[in-house]
Amino acid sequence: MESKELRILLLEDEPTLGQEIGHALRKDGYLVQHLVNGLDAQRVLFDDTPDLAIFDIMVPGIDGLAVGKQAKQTFGIPVIFITARNSPADRVRGLDLGADDYIAKPFLMAELLLRVRNVLGRNGAESTNLDIAGLVIDLGSQNCNFNGTEIDLTATEYKLLLELVENRGRVLTKTHLLSQVWGYDAFDPNLVEVHLSSLRKKLNQAGVPEIIRTRRGLGYQAVK
């Protein structure tokens, strides 16, 4: 994606999860520094201030909550906490420290990326809009407009459009779209067809040129 070049400090002591989160973030265009120890994370905060911190709470060294508090209160960095414990007490503790968001393991990458974009947008760091054939998708406010006219999309239609546009040029299967937009509990591939057709109708009515193509037998593709 376009030159975001936003830096994210990731503190996650589970190698596999850290690696996968890093991978998904880098693929979305972020610069990621991945650390496994709270003390290292604290050092990095002083050396080189990132744009966003994603901290697992239970890590060696200093626990993620303490470093997160420091990141938030001393350096004003937005913080998203990750934890395996999903008890309300933990959530409240995290949010009390001024955490910008909180995500419980296990989670889907699409959800983490959505939250990362929201938090960065709220904090004014992410100003990027996606532009495709004159259709502007504002990632911060999650609005969509064409030639200055706002197109009223449902939450599902917005997510569907975003998934296609972020992967523009690539053919996305119904299974891909179903899993990334609806999550893994959804089974019915017709959901994709139904919502896609209503999305297309709205884009058409607003005068947007045909940007989503159907590749028969394969899936859907947003034009390059």
């Binding site: 589970e14 996968e20 693929k27 296990p106 889907l108 053919v171 299974t175 899993s179 990334q180």
Partner: peptide, 22 residues
């Protein structure tokens, strides 16, 4: 238990996001 489950989900989830084979 949730740690390895979260890892499994992250691995497979990223796999789907990158795969082109339905």
């Amino acid at each position: 238990l949730k740690t390895p489950l979260a890892n499994l989900i992250a691995l497979a989830d990223n796999g789907i996001r990158q795969s082109d084979s339905e």
